[in-house]
Simulated assay, not measured.
Amino acid sequence: MTNSTESCRVLKEPRLVERKFLARPQHEGAGAIVRRSIGRFELKYFDPFLVLDEFSVTAPAGFPDHPHRGFETVTYMLQGSVTHEDFEGHKGTIGVGDLQWMTAGRGIVHSEMPAAQGTQKGLQLWINLSSKHKMIEPRYQEILSKNVSEAVKDGIKVRVIAGEALGTKSPIYTRTPTMYLDFTLKPGAHLEQPIAISWNAFVYILEGEGIFGSLKSSPVSAHHLLLLSNGDGLEAWNKSSKPLRFILVGGEPLGEPVVQFGPFVMNNQEEIDQTIEDFENCINGFEKARHWRSESSLSLDI
C-alpha cells in the first residue's frame, strides 16, 4: 500500500544535481560586470544553451553596438532598466520584470545600455538556433512585467517566461523548444515541476538557499548554477527561514555541431568565416550596419 504522499507525487523520476558551479564576477562589454555560468571555460555549451549571464551595469558602462548571428537572446530584468537599439530602427526600454526575447537570426547589430541611475541588474540567456533557423529574419517578442503569466500555489510563486507551470502558460513562442520559469518559494515550500524527459535543464539561484533534486543534498545558495540529470522533473525545497528564488530553464537539445566566434554561432568554420566576411562587408543581413550607430554611442562622441 502506498501512503497519501506517494500517491500524490507528480514526478516518477526526479532529476538530481549532476554538476554545480559558482558564477564569479568578471568584466564584459564596456565596464559591465557579469556572473557567467554557461559559456565559461568549464562549461562552454549546454545544448541548446550557449551563455547565461547575471549582469550588473552602472552608467556609463554597458553593452555598446555589437553584432549577433545564429541564435536568440533572452533578457530578463531584475533591477533598474536597460534601453535596446538596433539597426532595424527598433528601440525600447525594459524595466524590472520585463522581458525581451530577441531572435538574431541572420544578423542584427544592437546596443544595450543603462536607462536609469544606479545599478541595473538582470539575466541574459543565449539559446542556440538549429541549422534550418540560423538565417531567418530577426524578430522580437517583448512582454511587460504586468503581462508575464504568473501563478501562486502552496507557498510557491512562478513567473512563466516560457513554457508552463502550475497550470499557467506563457504566450512566448520558442523556435528552439524552451522552458524558462522564475520561482519563488516561501520558507517550508516544496516544488515538483515536470520537465520533458528528453530536454536538458538547469537551475540558477538568484536569492536565498534551497535543496534541489534530493532531500539528502546540501543546501545551495545564490549565484550557483546546477546542471540537472535525466528525469521527468525537478523537486526543490526551501528549508531556510528566508524566501528562495531561482530560475529553472530547460530546452530540447539540437544535437548539431557548434562553432562559435564571439557573437556569431554557426555549425561549421566555413559558416563562421562567411559570417565574419558578411559583417565586415555589410552584406547578407548586415547591410544596415554600414551607416548605423546607436544614439547612445553617438552621444559618447560629444
Rank of each mutant, 00 (worst) to 15 (best):
V51P: 01
A23E: 01
G29S: 13
D53C: 11
E42Q: 08
F49A: 03
G62C: 12
A30G: 05
A59V: 07
D65E: 14
G29Q: 06
I38Q: 01
Q26E: 14
G39W: 05
L43W: 05
L52H: 11
L22N: 08
V34C: 11
L52Y: 09
P64A: 15
Q26P: 06
A32V: 09
I38S: 02
L52T: 12
I38H: 01
A61V: 14
K44I: 08
R24M: 08
F46N: 00
V57I: 15
L52I: 14
A30C: 07
E28V: 03
F49P: 02
P48A: 02
E28W: 01
L43D: 04
V34E: 01
G29P: 07
L50A: 07
Y45F: 14
E28I: 05
L52P: 05
V34P: 00
L43P: 04
L52S: 05
G39T: 10
D53A: 11
P60R: 12
E28C: 03
A32L: 04
G31S: 13
P25S: 09
E54D: 14
G31L: 13
G62Y: 04
T58W: 09
L22C: 10
L52V: 13
P64R: 15
S37T: 12
G31F: 10
V57P: 00
P25Y: 03
R35K: 15
G31Q: 11
A23T: 12
I33T: 12
S37E: 05
S37A: 13
F63T: 06
R24P: 00
P64H: 15
L50I: 14
I33K: 01
Q26N: 12
G39K: 08
D47E: 03
V57G: 02
E54L: 11
P64L: 15
E28P: 02
R35I: 07
I33D: 01
S37V: 11
I38C: 06
P48F: 00
L50K: 00
G62L: 04
Q26R: 15
D47W: 00
D47C: 04
G39E: 06
D65P: 08
A61K: 05
Y45L: 09
R36N: 09
L50Q: 01
F55D: 00
G39P: 06
F46G: 00
D47P: 03
V34K: 01
G31E: 08
G39S: 07
F63V: 13
G31W: 08
F49C: 04
E42G: 07
A61N: 14
L52W: 09
F41Y: 08
D53V: 10
F46L: 07
V34F: 00
P60N: 09
R24D: 08
